[in-house]
Design a protein around this nucleic acid. Structure first.
Lengths: 118, 118
DNA sequence: CGATTAGTTCTATGTCTATAGTACAATGGC
DNA sequence: GCCATTGTACTATAGACATAGAACTAATCG
């Protein structure tokens, strides 16, 4: 039984977000969702070295922090960024963060991670 | 022998910063430095419940992440925010973060933490 | 000098976390 | 119906982290 819960907007904590994003793989997931696209887990560019259950864990941390929304359709899970909710609670923060990272680390990890379905 | 090292600006990592700030006590330290003031450890408003060595640990995490600079004068340690270095590497990020938090959590922890020298 | 103050260093401990292996469930294609 | 696909759930484990007690250092004060 899938148990995908999302915290209500009011419960989103800045500390939870900071923690969730302090892990490079998780940050990369959020970054790849930044353009508003919805992606299935397999569509992410992620380190091939990580196992399935590890990635499930990372998605759960992101979900619990309120950063992402997961929608089940068929056997696939579509993940998107809860940008509006985050912006509502912490105006400008997410944009500034993604922009700040973009200016220093552009292309770094998109090359480091190979595309592998898990 | 005091061993207070600061990473050069180029080595400051966004992930390190995010991690360091994901802990409420550490976030509070940075917030109290936001106005540019230099504070001794005892001058911070922090939870009275924390021991001396715990706080030393938190200051070290912040120092290692590149967020704060510690200057020794006499028997006191003056701590300040490395705002310019952070801004250079991650433009707008720190300001957006502090502002984002300020809009939602103003006064929350400044009351929760009592002033206690440690 | 002796005592106090400010803060570090060392060591220990319980808890949390990233990782992964295996089993499981639900869907879709043949 | 059978099998591959797409993940989750459960369980385990090694390492990291927050917390703190105790000893220690360096500086200041009386």
């Amino acid at each position: 039984m899938k148990n995908l819960q999302h915290p209500p907007k009011e419960d989103i904590s800045l500390f939870g977000i900071l923690y969730a994003l302090s892990e490079p793989v998780r940050f990369s997931i959020v970054e790849q969702l930044a353009d508003g696209e919805e992606l299935t887990c397999g569509a992410f560019k992620l380190p091939a070295s990580k196992g399935k259950s590890t990635m499930t864990h990372h998605f759960k941390v992101l979900r619990d922090s309120g950063l992402i929304y997961t929608r089940v359709e068929g056997r696939e899970h579509y993940t998107s960024l809860r940008r509006e909710d985050i912006n509502d609670r912490f105006p400008q923060f997410l944009d500034a963060l993604l922009k700040a990272y973009g200016t220093t680390a552009k292309n770094h990890h998109s090359r480091a991670f190979s595309s592998k379905s898990f």
